[in-house]
Each structure stands twice: as C-alpha cells, then as structure tokens.
Simulated assay, not measured.
Amino acid sequence: MTRYALVTGAGQGIGYGIAKRLTDDGYHVYVTDYDEGLAKAAAAKLGGTALRLDVSDPQSVKDAAGKVPELSVLVNSAGIYPWSPLLEISVEEFDRVFAINVRGNLLCMQAFHRQLAADGTGAIVNITSMSALVPAVGVGSYAASKAAAAMLIQQAAIEFAPDGIRVNGVAPGSVQTEGTNRPIQDGEEPQKAAFIPLGRLAGPADIASIVSFLASGDAGYVTGQSIVVDGGFLSNTFALYRHATQPA
C-alpha cells in the first residue's frame, strides 16, 4: 500500500534532502515549494508530485490540502533566514519571518490534520533551528521565530495525541545548502569546519535521516520532542568562547 508524505520548502536545500530520503523510504512525496518551478524540477527527479505551496498564504495552504487525499507524514521545512540587527528590522520583515516560520507551520498542521488523523499513525516533523536555543547577533527575528516554532511543536503534540498524530521537531545547526551559497553536489562530502566538534558542516542528508526516524514506526512512542542536529556545536560553546578570547 502506498503511503504519502508532504514536505514544504522541498524545492532545494534541507527540504529537498528530506523529500529525497522519504522517497528512498518508500513514500510517494508531495514536493511543495512557493516557487513552482523548483517544486516541479525536484519532483521530476524524485518521481513525486509537485505542488505550489506558499505556507504564509492561508488560501494557498487550503488549495494544496484539497489536492492531497491521503497523508501519513507532514514535514514543515519551509523557512526564511534574514540577517538584520534588531534595531534595523522593519515591521514588514519581522511579520514575514513569523508568517513563514511559525504561522506557516500552524496553517499546514491545521490544513492536513484530517488526512493525518485518518491515517491512524500520522506524524508531523517541523524543522526549527539551534537558533531557537541560543542567540546570535544579526538573526533576532529568525531566532525568535524558531523559538516560537519549537513551542508550537510541544503544543501540537499534546493536542493532536488523541488523534493518533505524533508531532516532533529537528533543530539543525550549520547546514551546507543553497542558503550558504555552496550546495552539496551528488557524492560530495560537507566542508570541514574546525569550530564544530565532529569537524564538518551538516549536509541535508544528516537532517533528513533524523526526520526519517521521527516519521517511522521506530519513533512510535516519541512525541513533543525536538532533536538538535549540530555536530556537537552547542555542547562546545565554552571552548569557542575560550578560543575567541585568546590573544591573537
């Protein structure tokens, strides 16, 4: 029996890596993106179904949900990552970050709830960030949005549990994607990074493997959790501080 998964923001980067892994796991994947061209190109590679989906637009989400009769797994991966000091953030930019990174998750969880509940073992995995846990100069609106998205995971987990839907999250660290201006090519290893204990950046596949676990029956008793996938970066903050304060 065919099982279906839907991934938002799957035209490239982490979202595409997740869609690829779920395809390899045997799901038929709805590959969605606000850029219809990216969605179609990615779906063609994976043998999935392309859908244009702007998670910040309630009507776009509603229209997409109407085209998905069955669903076992929903992955909310769409997000934006603007750099702007707090004193320079405009109201419009702040609202857009929250509309995509937080409200978009909520709209999709609402819109696809019926299909996930009907599946009987539905799973939702939302992609947050290690920025939900630690501040960094210049990413205030992003960090605040991801902290809100992390709490939304816990709230949805307790409210959706009676419907048989598990809700979890993955919080990536530094991932090498189009967003870092150097996407990983097929067969290529992520670039080395001395500031990360495991010695390299993450690739989309590192995030996708955890999503695969959380979507599977092996995680059947796991809900309301967010797994940090950062190569040990957050555990190494004291060493980073010591290195930064050493005389040149």
Rank of each mutant, 00 (worst) to 15 (best):
N168A: 07
N168H: 11
G169Y: 01
G169C: 02
G169I: 02
V170I: 08
V170S: 06
A171L: 02
A171M: 07
A171H: 07
P172F: 03
G173I: 10
G173A: 12
S174G: 14
S174F: 14
V175F: 02
Q176I: 11
Q176T: 07
T177K: 07
T177R: 05
E178D: 09
E178K: 11
G179A: 13
G179R: 12
G179Y: 11
N181D: 12
N181Q: 14
P183L: 10
P183V: 05
I184G: 11
I184E: 05
Q185N: 13
Q185C: 13
D186C: 08
D186A: 15
D186M: 11
D186V: 15
G187C: 08
G187E: 05
G187Y: 07
E188Q: 13
E189C: 08
E189A: 15
P190N: 02
P190L: 06
P190M: 04
Q191C: 11
Q191K: 14
K192W: 01
K192S: 14
K192C: 12
A193R: 06
A193S: 13
A194P: 06
A194V: 06
A194C: 08
A194R: 10
F195I: 15
F195C: 09
L198V: 15
G199Y: 04
R200M: 13
R200S: 09
L201I: 12
L201F: 12
A202K: 00
G203P: 02
G203E: 01
P204N: 06
P204T: 00
A205K: 07
A205S: 13
A205Q: 10
A205N: 08
A205G: 11
D206P: 03
D206L: 05
I207F: 00
I207H: 00
I207C: 03
A208K: 02
A208E: 00
A208F: 00
A208Q: 03
A208V: 04
A208L: 04
S209R: 12
S209G: 12
I210H: 01
I210F: 00
I210C: 10
I210M: 12
I210T: 15
V211C: 04
V211G: 03
V211N: 05
S212T: 09
S212C: 12
S212P: 03
F213E: 08
F213K: 02
L214T: 07
L214K: 04
L214S: 07
A215N: 03
G217R: 12
D218H: 10
D218K: 11
A219G: 09
A219R: 09
A219S: 11
A219L: 08
G220I: 01
Y221G: 09
Y221H: 15
